[in-house]
Simulated scan of single mutants.
Amino acid sequence: MPVPLAKKNTAFSKLIAKLDASAEHRAGMAEAREWVAKEVLVEEGDTLRTLRLKRNLNQTQFAALLGTTQAQVARLEKGNTDPQRSTCKKLREVLGISADKLEEILDRQEKAYELKAKK
């Protein structure tokens, strides 16, 4: 019987957390995140996900900086939620971007979400 997706994701998240916590693997994890953002997700352009990865943050770490949950970060990155003004302010502060840049990113993500939803 196949393992439920939620259990697979939990196991993967635990592995990533273990690697992040390891002094031996920390630098490699940082390089991997940056590589994913620059090479694999290059066609996305700047998104919350690519900017987060370039800053070597996983969703849980990013959520802690924003004062929210990992699940909320996932929704923000997916583009299917409209963040509150206070969240937008925190996003700009943590990512070091302007309000105009954040609006551009959120618009791009919303359009990408809508295209995926149509498929």
Rank of each mutant, 00 (worst) to 15 (best):
M1V: 09
P2C: 03
P2G: 01
V3H: 01
V3M: 09
P4T: 01
L5E: 12
L5G: 06
A6I: 13
A6H: 10
K7Y: 09
K8A: 13
N9M: 13
T10M: 12
T10C: 07
A11Q: 12
F12H: 10
F12Y: 15
L15H: 11
L15F: 14
L15M: 14
K18T: 15
L19A: 14
L19P: 05
D20M: 13
S22I: 10
A23S: 14
E24W: 12
E24R: 14
H25N: 13
R26G: 06
R26N: 12
A27N: 10
G28K: 11
G28C: 07
G28I: 05
A30W: 06
A30Q: 14
E31W: 08
A32L: 15
R33F: 11
R33D: 06
R33I: 05
E34G: 08
W35H: 09
W35F: 13
V36M: 13
V36H: 11
V36P: 07
E39K: 15
E39V: 12
L41I: 05
L41A: 03
L41R: 06
V42I: 10
V42R: 15
E43N: 07
E43D: 14
E43Q: 09
E43Y: 05
E44H: 13
E44W: 09
G45L: 07
D46N: 14
T47G: 11
L48G: 00
T50S: 03
T50R: 00
L51M: 12
R52F: 07
L53M: 10
R55P: 00
R55M: 08
R55W: 04
N56A: 15
N56S: 15
L57G: 00
L57S: 00
N58G: 13
N58F: 05
Q59W: 01
F62W: 05
A63F: 06
A64Y: 02
A64V: 09
L65F: 09
L66K: 01
L66R: 00
L66G: 02
G67V: 09
T69G: 02
Q70I: 05
A71L: 07
A71M: 08
Q72Y: 14
Q72T: 12
V73N: 04
V73A: 10
A74H: 07
L76A: 00
L76H: 00
K78Q: 10
G79S: 06
T81F: 03
T81M: 05
D82R: 10
D82G: 05
P83N: 09
Q84T: 13
Q84S: 11
R85P: 01
C88F: 03
C88M: 14
C88K: 13
K89H: 11
K89M: 08
K90A: 08
L91R: 01
R92L: 03
R92V: 00
V94Q: 04
L95T: 03
G96S: 08
S98W: 07
A99E: 14
D100H: 06
D100E: 15
L102E: 05
L102W: 09
E103S: 12
E103N: 11
E104S: 07
E104H: 03
L106N: 06
L106V: 05
D107L: 04
D107Q: 05
D107T: 12
R108Q: 09
R108N: 13
Q109V: 04
K111M: 13
A112S: 12
A112Q: 10
A112W: 04
E114T: 06
L115Q: 14
K118R: 13
K119C: 04
